[in-house]
Design a protein around this nucleic acid. Structure first.
Lengths: 109, 109
DNA sequence: TTATTACATTGCAATATTACGATAGATAGT
DNA sequence: ACTATCTATCGTAATATTGCAATGTAATAA
């Protein structure tokens, strides 16, 4: 049906899945990596950098913004996007919590 | 169009996105968490544990299996699923690499 | 063999995502 | 005001994902 039964799962599971969905597209990974390594953070470069249309980039930026991973401030005619360090760490901990939950010494199977 | 232009991005970006997609559904998070905490790893419990149909669970298990995060061994009539420690660590490092790439002292914005 | 149990696979309907052209809004310069 | 530039949003088409009933498969039990 294409609709996820969120009510069956815990808030934590839904939250983690929602955040993971943002990482689940190479364009958004590319945007994040670009923002990480760029000393400046002008948006317009992204359309040049990735080969996607301006509307598509804008849409991906919106999703990144909605999860709080990035924030944009108006810089004259253009917009300056950058990663939100607080939220970044928060999301990092969310994933780390899942990964660390598994004790690598499980002898099952 | 609904089709991702994978050729525009690096292998690493595509790989990370592909793996993230597996985490992008609460049912699969729930399955992984169950496998982490269960001392035994019988599949059948999952249909009881989550409220989803058997076919749906089987489909999610398949996706988890395809990325290598879990592996199943036939145990008589039933199947024993468990997390693959090697792949688990591999995926963990994939995410950690992205998160650690961001220096939290970025003064931009 | 037949029945039962446990999963996997198929096929389909409903919803979600991705991409982009077209258009709108907002700011800066003339 | 007019124009140019940059970004956001709308509308739409194509593909992907989710969920489940029905069916298939494989192993065990009677």
């Amino acid at each position: 049906m294409g609709v996820t039964k969120t009510d069956l799962f815990t808030d934590h599971q839904n939250e983690l899945a929602k955040v993971a969905k943002v990482f689940a597209h190479p364009a958004r990974i590319a945007i994040l990596e670009y923002l990480i390594h760029a000393d400046s953070c002008i948006n317009g470069d992204l359309v040049q950098e990735l080969g996607l249309a301006q509307a598509t980039i804008s849409q991906h930026l919106r999703e990144l913004k909605e999860t709080g991973l990035i924030k944009g401030s108006i810089e004259g005619v253009s917009v300056c996007y950058c990663i939100d360090p607080i939220r970044w760490t928060e999301v990092q901990n969310l994933f780390q919590g899942l990964f660390d939950g598994f004790p690598k010494i499980s002898g099952c199977c």
